[in-house]
Design a protein around this nucleic acid. Structure first.
Lengths: 349, 349
DNA sequence: CTGAAAGCGCTAACAC
DNA sequence: GTGTTAGCGCTTTCAG
């Protein structure tokens, strides 16, 4: 716990220059006599030398730290994305500075600034904001950011997107194909573009089927930022609350489309506590295809998105970009896929 | 995207010294004439100055980054812990370097070393190792680490522990009280001390009830490190696999105790696919009380542990410790609580 | 192959 | 109040 050894300490002890020590200890391929190199390594070991990467970073202006900004880590969706990111990052020797924006655009901006000050060169961002001036600023100053999940319109960055609108359409079409006509749509606050897009998909598909959707059938959770529920079960509660709200109007659709699986779980829970059978009385469809969707009862029909792959792709792109293996900036649009299980029944008409 | 402005650039433009610029821009409370200070702030803004925290850190040897090492972020348990950590860290202006050990002790050591090289001063660790020499080394060199979740025997560090053994006892006692005598215990590999302790609790309670447990009733998943299942559903699969293994012996206990809820979900899924009713034919109890446990069907009886609080406590401790608001190093032992739902039935004897 | 010296951006004594 | 100077630990020309 005394002052840590530096390359100078080693140099001094060996009566050589710090430069030489650096050359061998930093694994540069600069030529150093093998014998000397070994002595250096030996005394480094012996003196318990640990390289100070801050010193190195200040000099080289290179870092092996990257930033990740997501709305919430307790959301299994983002946990999967992060896991994908972490995996390829760690393959390349990178570490991750994890930032939670908590759905708060200001926090997102703060994190962006802080990452930039910490001299990070690359960030993966799932943005909850729609004013991207801070983002623009840091990018203009050389920060490389690839976005995941949340599409940012007309933005000159790499984006790994997901076709949420099509997802909404596919889910709706499936319901329609099963004979449903009375469909309610429950969604978390429409702050995220992804959420808007799913809803849009729903509306579009209903419209093109010639089915009007009365406004009571679209229920949007009121946003209550501030204290998030412990453990992030907010969406579950949302689902319950919105279901109450929907049913308390006396309305009784044959199917409920929830904006994500967590919300759908809440829907199913509320339905169960009202002794309403799924899918016999009301069908439920979700979005995300969490792994839990397979094991709830009844197993939830949902829209799959490749969360883990999203993380991997995003991080791979970022790595290539930082390597200057530049591919031109562009978008990747990942496609939705319906996973039919048993929470939706066929209506015999 | 040109070279970033430094305090020297600002100083030059204003014909003053860099020291003065530093004094105002670093928010030290060193006296500077207000008018000058304002001019400095103005031109800093104008020149688009962003402080370089690497420069600062090299000088001050202080950092606002801390490390977190956990086995897997896709495990909702750890996601909650991390969320708790992140919350208090961010209150104190700290960021988190997130490291996944993937249940691999070598990776854990690597991360520890790397964090130390990055000059982090504090780490929160859920260790998967039982040889703690690297840990000891870095701690001897001044790194402060508080451990969560995984108890480390005779270790001179802060530990936020959880009484796993008592949890195992409580769960077993509950089963016993409900009239069960034929109980199987399924567990993930016993690499983690937490897992050993739950099993220990189970064994102790069975023993003190005078009930011998035949070895076939204790099934331990074989460890298959290497490629982890995508998204981390490994434990779910474990549960299924072990249930198959158990049942294929022809044995039919009245209750199954799973080492955690994820595993229990796998158990229930396998049971369901064999048309074995829970709890009518076999009762199931888990451990962790994930939020999903409430919404699976039937709702899973489980042992609650305050995951989120664990994270908060650990981080709070670490912060105090780094502040040198030293409390003597010690342990906090959090207590288990049974959450009875409907996956366990009462046996009429 | 090795060394001397400069400097990355910043802060903190110490002078004035 | 402000300036001068040194130096955190490291790498990297440039000489030799």
């Amino acid at each position: 716990m005394n002052k840590p050894t530096t390359i100078y300490d080693i140099a001094e002890k060996l009566n050589i220059s710090a430069a030489t020590v650096s050359r061998v200890l930093s694994k540069s391929n600069y030529p150093v006599r093998a014998a000397l190199a070994n002595r250096i390594r030996a005394t480094a070991e012996e003196m318990n030398y640990v390289p100070n990467s801050i010193g190195r970073q200040l000099k080289t202006n290179k870092t092996s730290t990257m930033g990740v900004i997501i709305p919430s880590i307790t959301n299994p969706f983002y946990a999967s994305v992060v896991s994908g990111i972490e995996e390829v990052a760690s393959e390349k020797g990178f570490q991750i500075l994890l930032c939670n924006s908590q759905q708060n655009p200001e926090l997102e901006d703060q994190h962006l600034n802080m990452l930039f000050e910490k001299q990070v060169k690359g960030v993966i961002l799932s943005s909850v904001s729609n004013r991207h001036d801070v983002l623009r600023k840091v990018m203009a100053n050389g920060l490389k950011v690839v976005s995941v999940d949340q599409h940012m319109a007309d933005f000159e960055a790499f984006q790994i997107n997901f076709d949420y609108r099509k997802g909404g359409m596919i889910g709706t079409r499936y319901l329609l194909d099963q004979g449903h006509r009375e469909i309610a749509y429950l969604t978390a606050p429409l702050t995220l573009t992804s959420r808007q897009q799913i809803l849009q998909g729903f509306m579009d598909e209903m419209a093109s089927a010639g089915l009007p959707v009365p406004p009571e059938r679209i229920v949007v959770a009121d946003k209550r930022r501030g204290k998030k529920a412990e453990g992030g079960s907010e969406e579950f509660e949302n689902g319950k609350r919105m279901t109450r709200q929907l049913l308390d109007t006396g309305d009784m659709p044959t199917a409920i489309f929830a904006c994500n699986d967590m919300t759908a779980f809440g829907v199913m829970d509320e339905l169960a506590s009202r002794k309403i059978k799924v899918p016999e009385q009301i069908s439920v469809i979700g979005f995300d295809n969490l792994e839990f969707s397979e094991i709830v009862s009844p197993p939830l029909t949902s829209i799959e998105q490749p969360k883990y792959e999203m993380g991997r792709l995003a991080c791979g792109m970022l790595m290539d970009w930082m390597d200057d293996s530049i591919r031109q900036t562009g978008e990747i649009m990942l496609q939705p896929r319906l996973v039919a299980r048993t929470s939706v029944r066929e209506i015999d008409s």
